[in-house]
Protein backbone atom coordinates (compact mmCIF):
# COMPACT_ATOMS: atom_id res chain seq x y z
CA UNK A 1 0.00 0.00 0.00
CA UNK A 2 2.72 2.39 1.04
CA UNK A 3 4.85 1.42 -1.96
CA UNK A 4 1.97 2.01 -4.30
CA UNK A 5 1.38 5.38 -2.75
CA UNK A 6 4.98 6.45 -3.08
CA UNK A 7 5.05 5.10 -6.63
CA UNK A 8 2.04 7.19 -7.41
CA UNK A 9 3.61 10.25 -5.86
CA UNK A 10 6.79 9.64 -7.80
CA UNK A 11 4.91 9.36 -11.06
CA UNK A 12 3.04 12.57 -10.36
CA UNK A 13 6.27 14.30 -9.45
CA UNK A 14 7.87 13.04 -12.62
CA UNK A 15 4.97 14.30 -14.68
CA UNK A 16 5.18 17.68 -13.04
CA UNK A 17 8.91 17.84 -13.57
CA UNK A 18 8.62 16.91 -17.22
CA UNK A 19 5.93 19.51 -17.64
CA UNK A 20 8.21 22.10 -16.08
CA UNK A 21 11.03 21.04 -18.35
CA UNK A 22 8.74 21.38 -21.32
CA UNK A 23 7.73 24.78 -20.10
CA UNK A 24 11.30 25.92 -19.73
CA UNK A 25 12.00 24.65 -23.23
CA UNK A 26 9.01 26.58 -24.48
CA UNK A 27 10.23 29.69 -22.72
CA UNK A 28 13.67 29.29 -24.26
CA UNK A 29 12.37 29.21 -27.81
CA UNK A 30 10.25 32.29 -27.39
CA UNK A 31 11.21 35.17 -29.60
CA UNK A 32 12.60 38.43 -28.34
CA UNK A 33 15.11 39.08 -25.66
CA UNK A 34 14.97 36.57 -22.88
CA UNK A 35 16.11 33.21 -21.65
CA UNK A 36 17.80 31.17 -24.34
CA UNK A 37 19.40 27.75 -24.13
CA UNK A 38 22.09 28.66 -26.62
CA UNK A 39 22.59 32.34 -26.57
CA UNK A 40 25.09 34.65 -28.07
CA UNK A 41 24.11 37.78 -26.31
CA UNK A 42 25.83 40.68 -27.93
CA UNK A 43 27.72 42.58 -25.28
CA UNK A 44 25.74 45.48 -23.97
CA UNK A 45 26.56 47.65 -21.05
CA UNK A 46 25.12 45.19 -18.59
CA UNK A 47 26.37 45.28 -15.03
CA UNK A 48 27.85 41.86 -15.50
CA UNK A 49 29.75 42.97 -18.57
CA UNK A 50 31.10 45.97 -16.83
CA UNK A 51 32.33 43.72 -14.05
CA UNK A 52 34.14 41.62 -16.63
CA UNK A 53 35.69 44.69 -18.16
CA UNK A 54 36.58 45.94 -14.69
CA UNK A 55 34.94 49.24 -15.42
CA UNK A 56 32.30 49.89 -12.86
CA UNK A 57 33.33 53.28 -11.71
CA UNK A 58 31.30 55.94 -13.31
CA UNK A 59 33.11 59.14 -14.11
CA UNK A 60 30.25 61.28 -12.87
CA UNK A 61 29.72 59.22 -9.79
CA UNK A 62 30.21 60.60 -6.34
CA UNK A 63 31.58 57.21 -5.43
CA UNK A 64 34.65 58.02 -7.36
CA UNK A 65 36.75 58.07 -4.23
CA UNK A 66 39.42 55.56 -5.11
CA UNK A 67 41.33 55.42 -8.28
CA UNK A 68 42.99 52.12 -7.64
CA UNK A 69 40.56 50.05 -5.65
CA UNK A 70 39.12 48.76 -8.85
CA UNK A 71 42.41 47.48 -10.14
CA UNK A 72 44.19 46.05 -7.19
CA UNK A 73 42.98 42.47 -7.22
CA UNK A 74 44.23 40.57 -10.18
CA UNK A 75 41.58 37.91 -10.01
CA UNK A 76 38.15 38.98 -11.30
CA UNK A 77 36.29 36.38 -9.30
CA UNK A 78 38.06 37.43 -6.15
CA UNK A 79 37.34 41.04 -6.64
CA UNK A 80 33.67 40.27 -7.13
CA UNK A 81 33.46 37.88 -4.21
CA UNK A 82 35.53 39.73 -1.67
CA UNK A 83 35.20 43.30 -2.77
CA UNK A 84 32.05 44.20 -4.66
CA UNK A 85 29.99 41.62 -2.88
CA UNK A 86 31.94 41.12 0.31
CA UNK A 87 28.77 41.52 2.30
CA UNK A 88 27.17 38.57 0.54
CA UNK A 89 30.22 36.46 1.14
CA UNK A 90 30.13 37.29 4.81
CA UNK A 91 26.50 36.31 4.96
CA UNK A 92 27.29 33.01 3.29
CA UNK A 93 29.81 32.33 6.00
CA UNK A 94 27.09 33.04 8.50
CA UNK A 95 24.76 30.65 6.70
CA UNK A 96 27.39 28.03 7.35
CA UNK A 97 27.60 29.15 10.96
CA UNK A 98 23.86 28.84 11.42
CA UNK A 99 23.76 25.48 9.71
CA UNK A 100 26.36 24.09 12.01
CA UNK A 101 24.67 25.52 15.05
CA UNK A 102 21.45 23.93 13.94
CA UNK A 103 23.20 20.65 13.38
CA UNK A 104 23.41 19.88 17.03
CA UNK A 105 19.79 20.90 17.42
CA UNK A 106 18.19 18.95 14.64
CA UNK A 107 20.30 15.80 14.47
CA UNK A 108 19.02 13.44 17.13
CA UNK A 109 21.51 12.38 19.73
CA UNK A 110 22.18 8.67 19.67
CA UNK A 111 25.28 6.71 20.39
CA UNK A 112 27.44 5.42 17.57
CA UNK A 113 30.48 3.18 17.75
CA UNK A 114 33.59 3.96 15.72
CA UNK A 115 36.39 1.59 14.95
CA UNK A 116 39.86 2.04 16.29
CA UNK A 117 42.04 3.75 13.63
CA UNK A 118 44.63 1.70 11.86
CA UNK A 119 48.28 2.16 12.67
CA UNK A 120 49.13 3.38 9.19
CA UNK A 121 46.59 6.19 9.41
CA UNK A 122 47.74 7.07 12.89
CA UNK A 123 51.41 7.29 11.84
CA UNK A 124 50.90 9.10 8.57
CA UNK A 125 48.30 11.53 9.78
CA UNK A 126 50.73 14.28 10.90
CA UNK A 127 52.32 14.36 7.45
CA UNK A 128 48.92 14.50 5.77
CA UNK A 129 47.79 17.19 8.12
CA UNK A 130 50.85 19.33 7.45
CA UNK A 131 50.32 18.90 3.72
CA UNK A 132 46.68 19.91 4.02
CA UNK A 133 47.51 22.91 6.14
CA UNK A 134 50.13 24.00 3.67
CA UNK A 135 47.84 23.71 0.69
CA UNK A 136 45.04 25.46 2.56
CA UNK A 137 47.35 28.22 3.72
CA UNK A 138 48.68 28.73 0.23
CA UNK A 139 45.18 28.95 -1.17
CA UNK A 140 43.95 31.69 1.05
CA UNK A 141 47.18 33.64 0.99
CA UNK A 142 47.18 33.63 -2.80
CA UNK A 143 43.41 33.90 -3.09
CA UNK A 144 43.53 37.34 -4.63
CA UNK A 145 46.06 36.36 -7.25
CA UNK A 146 45.10 32.90 -8.40
CA UNK A 147 41.98 30.74 -8.27
CA UNK A 148 41.16 29.65 -4.77
CA UNK A 149 40.26 31.73 -1.79
CA UNK A 150 38.85 31.55 1.67
CA UNK A 151 36.09 29.01 1.24
CA UNK A 152 38.05 26.19 -0.40
CA UNK A 153 41.03 27.00 1.77
CA UNK A 154 38.90 26.68 4.87
CA UNK A 155 37.50 23.41 3.64
CA UNK A 156 40.97 22.03 3.00
CA UNK A 157 42.24 23.14 6.38
CA UNK A 158 39.29 21.50 8.01
CA UNK A 159 40.16 18.23 6.34
CA UNK A 160 43.39 18.36 8.31
CA UNK A 161 41.31 18.43 11.43
CA UNK A 162 39.17 15.63 10.05
CA UNK A 163 42.21 13.47 9.52
CA UNK A 164 43.23 14.18 13.06
CA UNK A 165 39.83 13.12 14.25
CA UNK A 166 39.87 9.96 12.18
CA UNK A 167 43.35 9.07 13.32
CA UNK A 168 42.36 9.57 16.91
CA UNK A 169 44.89 12.27 17.53
CA UNK A 170 44.20 15.20 19.75
CA UNK A 171 44.67 18.21 17.50
CA UNK A 172 42.58 21.18 18.48
CA UNK A 173 40.10 21.67 21.20
CA UNK A 174 36.43 22.08 20.45
CA UNK A 175 36.47 25.21 22.53
CA UNK A 176 39.47 26.63 20.67
CA UNK A 177 37.62 26.16 17.42
CA UNK A 178 34.73 28.15 18.74
CA UNK A 179 37.04 30.92 19.83
CA UNK A 180 38.68 30.97 16.40
CA UNK A 181 35.30 30.99 14.74
CA UNK A 182 33.98 33.83 16.83
CA UNK A 183 37.15 35.91 16.60
CA UNK A 184 37.29 35.48 12.84
CA UNK A 185 33.63 36.40 12.51
CA UNK A 186 33.89 39.39 14.77
CA UNK A 187 37.05 40.53 13.03
CA UNK A 188 35.37 40.53 9.65
CA UNK A 189 32.75 42.88 10.99
CA UNK A 190 35.39 44.69 13.03
CA UNK A 191 37.20 45.57 9.83
CA UNK A 192 33.87 46.60 8.38
CA UNK A 193 33.32 48.94 11.31
CA UNK A 194 36.90 50.18 11.02
CA UNK A 195 36.22 51.04 7.43
CA UNK A 196 33.09 52.83 8.58
CA UNK A 197 35.15 54.84 11.03
CA UNK A 198 37.91 55.61 8.56
CA UNK A 199 35.99 56.10 5.35
CA UNK A 200 32.42 56.42 6.52
CA UNK A 201 31.35 53.45 4.44
CA UNK A 202 30.96 49.86 5.48
CA UNK A 203 33.20 47.14 4.11
CA UNK A 204 35.14 49.48 1.96
CA UNK A 205 38.54 48.36 0.86
CA UNK A 206 40.40 51.22 2.46
CA UNK A 207 43.96 49.89 2.05
CA UNK A 208 44.84 51.11 -1.39
CA UNK A 209 47.79 52.08 -3.48
CA UNK A 210 49.53 48.78 -4.07
CA UNK A 211 50.71 47.05 -7.18
CA UNK A 212 48.82 44.33 -9.00
CA UNK A 213 50.41 40.94 -8.79
CA UNK A 214 52.25 41.52 -5.54
CA UNK A 215 51.61 39.19 -2.68
CA UNK A 216 50.62 42.14 -0.59
CA UNK A 217 48.17 43.73 -2.90
CA UNK A 218 44.44 44.01 -3.18
CA UNK A 219 44.14 45.95 0.05
CA UNK A 220 41.96 44.16 2.52
CA UNK A 221 41.11 41.24 0.25
CA UNK A 222 43.81 38.86 1.57
CA UNK A 223 42.90 39.80 5.11
CA UNK A 224 39.27 38.97 4.55
CA UNK A 225 40.22 35.77 2.81
CA UNK A 226 42.35 34.71 5.71
CA UNK A 227 39.58 35.45 8.17
CA UNK A 228 37.04 33.63 6.04
CA UNK A 229 39.36 30.68 5.71
CA UNK A 230 39.81 30.43 9.46
CA UNK A 231 36.17 30.80 10.07
CA UNK A 232 35.14 28.20 7.52
CA UNK A 233 37.79 25.83 8.73
CA UNK A 234 36.68 26.22 12.32
CA UNK A 235 33.05 25.78 11.41
CA UNK A 236 33.54 22.69 9.30
CA UNK A 237 35.82 21.19 11.92
CA UNK A 238 33.09 21.81 14.41
CA UNK A 239 30.85 19.42 12.49
CA UNK A 240 33.41 16.67 12.80
CA UNK A 241 33.64 17.31 16.48
CA UNK A 242 29.91 17.37 16.72
CA UNK A 243 29.87 13.82 15.42
CA UNK A 244 32.99 12.78 17.21
CA UNK A 245 31.81 13.88 20.60
CA UNK A 246 28.64 11.96 20.20
CA UNK A 247 30.55 8.73 19.86
Amino acid sequence: MKDEKSLFINIVALLILSFMAFYIYKVSIDTGEGIKITDNITPKMRVADRFLKKNVLDENSTYNFSQTAEDTSANIVTSIVVDYRLFDTTLEVIVLFVTILGFGFVIPKDRRRILKPSVILYRWSPILMILMLMIGGYMFINGHLSPGGGFPAGAIISTAVLIGVLAGRKTVNHKTLKVVEAIAGISIFGIGIASFIIKGVFFQNFLTGDKIGDLFSGGLIPVFYALIAFKVAAELSNIYFEFYEEC
Binding site: I9, A13, I16, F19, Y23
Partner: peptide, 19 residues
Protein backbone atom coordinates in the same frame (compact mmCIF):
# COMPACT_ATOMS: atom_id res chain seq x y z
CA UNK B 1 3.02 14.21 3.47
CA UNK B 2 3.75 15.39 0.00
CA UNK B 3 4.62 18.93 1.06
CA UNK B 4 7.04 19.22 -1.82
CA UNK B 5 4.57 17.57 -4.16
CA UNK B 6 1.97 20.15 -3.27
CA UNK B 7 4.63 22.79 -3.70
CA UNK B 8 5.22 21.59 -7.26
CA UNK B 9 1.50 21.49 -7.93
CA UNK B 10 1.37 25.10 -6.83
CA UNK B 11 4.19 25.94 -9.23
CA UNK B 12 2.29 24.06 -11.92
CA UNK B 13 -0.75 26.22 -11.32
CA UNK B 14 1.35 29.35 -11.56
CA UNK B 15 2.85 28.08 -14.82
CA UNK B 16 -0.59 27.38 -16.20
CA UNK B 17 -1.55 30.92 -15.26
CA UNK B 18 1.50 32.16 -17.10
CA UNK B 19 0.73 30.07 -20.20
Amino acid sequence: EGAVLLFSIGVLLLILGGL
